[in-house]
């Protein structure tokens, strides 16, 4: 009996150590990015770093405000374009689609999530950028182009999580509404969507997180100019693309500034994740 217990003890502690991997990696990521980035932020000053209008590493000027604005604009655009389509699609899958069709559409949406982001960027560069340049003006490489690409890229996240939260509702809700004579759409709008609100909210927040964090697709269609954008047809730069473009050749203080940009990005993402998890658990 004792030997058996001993044998059981080894795996238990081993599994505990393995289970700590996620936590330790998260800690490592946070610590190493902070170590690299914080010295520069404290040298420049938090306020000047976050709200400085000039990003000129060769002159030692590190202000990321234009990129914060760029990130906010591109993400907002993606949400405005993507969320309605994604919600319709999730309602379609959960309520309207015949089983045969939903069994085909679901893997297709999963595939949409698997396509490399560089391919999306490339597709946008070939179709969307020229379209905007020819029919709407400006250089084509623009906030609008970035928003359209990101809107497509966040579809799978929002669709799958919202669909699951609609499907997870107790069937009694729907039956009750039908019994009261409501049409299918009245049931969806008046009963199901309000009941699945927290899951849908979480899906949108996670979609925002994906849009904020996407790099390669955005680099290819956004134009990457470091200036405050004046319209949605202007090129812009986001926090992620700032890192993606300049990490290749940055060194010294400049590199630290990119890690500092990473800190800002990480803080935004952490806040978004925490609120999504809060929304999911609130039920």
């Amino acid at each position: 009996m004792k030997i058996k217990k001993f044998g059981e003890k080894i795996p238990q502690s081993l599994f505990f150590i393995i289970a700590l991997s996620a936590l330790s990696v998260l800690a490592l990521i946070t610590v190493f990015i902070l170590i690299e980035g914080v010295p520069l932020i404290s040298k420049v000053g938090v306020f000047k770093f976050l709200f400085g209008m000039k990003w000129a590493p060769s002159l030692g000027q590190y202000g990321i405000f234009p990129m914060i604005v760029g990130t906010v604009f591109v993400t907002t655009g993606a949400i405005i374009l993507g969320v309605p389509i994604a919600l319709c699609c999730s309602i379609f899958l959960a309520e309207f689609a015949p089983k045969k069709i939903s069994n085909l559409v679901r893997p297709a949406i999963q595939l949409l999530a698997g396509i490399p982001s560089v391919v999306y960027g490339f597709w946008g560069l070939i179709f969307i950028v020229p379209f905007i340049r020819n029919y709407m003006g400006g250089p084509g490489l623009s906030i609008l182009a970035g928003s359209i690409i990101l809107a497509i890229m966040i579809l799978p996240t929002i669709i799958s999580i919202s669909e699951v939260s609609i499907l997870a509702l107790p069937p009694l809700l729907k039956e009750g509404a039908f019994a009261l004579g409501a049409t299918h759409w009245q049931t969806i709008r008046g009963v199901l969507l309000p009941a699945a609100k927290s899951g849908i909210l979480a899906s949108i927040i996670l979609g925002i997180g994906r849009a904020v964090g996407e790099t390669m697709a955005v680099i290819m269609v956004l134009g990457n100019a470091v200036a405050l954008p004046k319209s949605i047809l202007d090129p812009a730069r986001t926090l992620t693309t700032n890192i993606g473009i300049e990490m290749g050749y940055a060194s010294g203080e400049h590199q630290q500034a990119l890690f500092a940009t990473g800190i800002v990005l990480l803080v935004i993402i952490m806040i978004l994740n925490a609120s999504a998890q809060y929304a999911i658990r609130r039920k």
Binding site: F32, G213, N273, A276, Q277
Partner: peptide, 24 residues
């Protein structure tokens, strides 16, 4: 704590993984 870590890791943008991998 473990689940929170895993969920947080899932949300971290790939470029931040790149920064981490580079420096670490």
């Amino acid at each position: 704590i473990i689940r929170f870590s895993a969920e947080s890791l899932a949300g971290i943008p790939s470029i931040v993984y790149g920064l981490f991998g580079f420096i670490f």
